[in-house]
């Protein structure tokens, strides 16, 4: 039965008929939800799906840290320093005999929060400034970009350090400090892609149908600049975690014994020659986070672009 194709199906496949001919088809036309379509496109990318699952697991680990590692993160067992991974201590113990597994699990709370929120701060501020500069151009562009140039002329870590020093230690201040340090990067990327998109004819068409500037920026320009922003943001999470850890190392971030992956790396670094597991496990945790964010970001970028639909 399947090899007989009805006339209607033929028309629908080839699209060669006029409206009237398949008006019957139009009557029972079912609307496809756009979210579902994006989700469908996303699911086709298996690696991206894997990334999303990893991310969800990491978030679950952070949420249920108390259940997974009920012992807490600061129990010292000084007789048992530098213990190698075993059944009792899955990831071994560190230089003061704390269980590394417990610390990695609890550290996910801090590291994930710092990574994602500071990137969000940077992305939101950067996108806003960059799109205003790129869209309006002229003097506005000059003022915004020159101020950001000043920010860029200071090395990122130094900038974050001085902001953290001014604001004082603490998780939230740390995130602001790390976030502001990477604002110029986002602003530049967004501005550059807006400059190319705003010359397109559909932007002129948007003006013509009476769109306000804000609507043009958010509905027409920014969605077409998404790709580089997503890539920059997913890569940014890793560097944010590491910058945050170096700030903790310098005493401007979180204070020990609060576990944080980056800080655990710097604690283990002096012993790396003899006790690899001190740096390996927090390092792997950072790597998994970054890797899953990257593949997830890639998949998201492709899924959001209708032109790549197969």
């Amino acid at each position: 039965m399947n090899n007989t194709v009805s006339f209607k199906e033929y028309i629908l496949k080839t699209g060669t008929a006029s409206v009237q001919e398949y008006s019957a088809e139009n009557d029972n036309y079912v609307r496809k939800s756009q979210l579902r379509e994006i989700w469908g496109r996303f699911c086709k990318n298996k690696i991206a799906l894997l990334g999303l699952i990893c991310l969800l697991l990491l978030v679950a680990m952070a949420l249920f840290a108390d259940v997974i590692a009920p012992e807490g993160y600061d129990n010292q067992d000084l007789y048992n320093k530098f213990a190698l991974p075993s059944a009792e201590h899955w990831f071994g113990t560190d230089n003061v005999g704390r269980d590394i597994f417990d610390r990695v699990v609890h550290g996910s709370r801090i590291s994930l929060t710092v990574g994602m929120i500071s990137v969000s701060i940077a992305a939101v501020v950067g996108i806003l400034l960059g799109s205003i500069a790129g869209y309006y151009g002229g003097r506005t562009d000059n003022i915004i970009m020159r101020i950001l140039d000043v920010f860029m002329s200071v090395p990122g870590i130094l900038l974050s350090l001085s902001i953290a020093a001014a604001l004082g230690p603490g998780l939230f201040n740390l995130m602001i400090a790390v976030g502001i340090g990477s604002v110029p990067g986002y602003a530049r990327i967004v501005r550059a892609s807006i400059l190319s998109v705003k010359e397109q004819e559909y932007i002129e068409a948007a003006h013509c149908i009476g769109c306000s500037n804000a609507r043009i920026i958010f509905r027409h320009v920014l969605p077409n600049c998404l790709a580089p922003i997503i890539v920059q943001a997913t890569l940014g999470v890793a560097s944010a975690i590491l910058v945050a850890s170096s700030m903790s190392f310098l005493g401007l971030g979180l204070e020990p014994p609060i576990p944080e992956w980056g800080a655990m790396l710097s604690v283990g670094r002096p012993y790396i020659r003899d006790y690899w597991h001190l740096v390996a496990f927090p390092g792997i945790a950072i790597m998994i986070t970054v890797f899953s964010l990257n593949v997830f970001g890639d998949g998201l970028r492709d899924a959001l672009d209708p032109r790549l639909k197969q």
Partner: peptide, 27 residues
């Protein structure tokens, strides 16, 4: 209103046909 020259660049590639047509009505 205006009808544009290049039908390949005068429509926002990220919007569906119904979104494009309904936008002026929404505004």
């Amino acid at each position: 209103q205006m009808i544009f020259q290049d039908p390949f660049s005068s429509l926002n590639p990220r919007m569906s046909i119904s979104q494009i047509i309904s936008e002026p009505l929404k505004i």
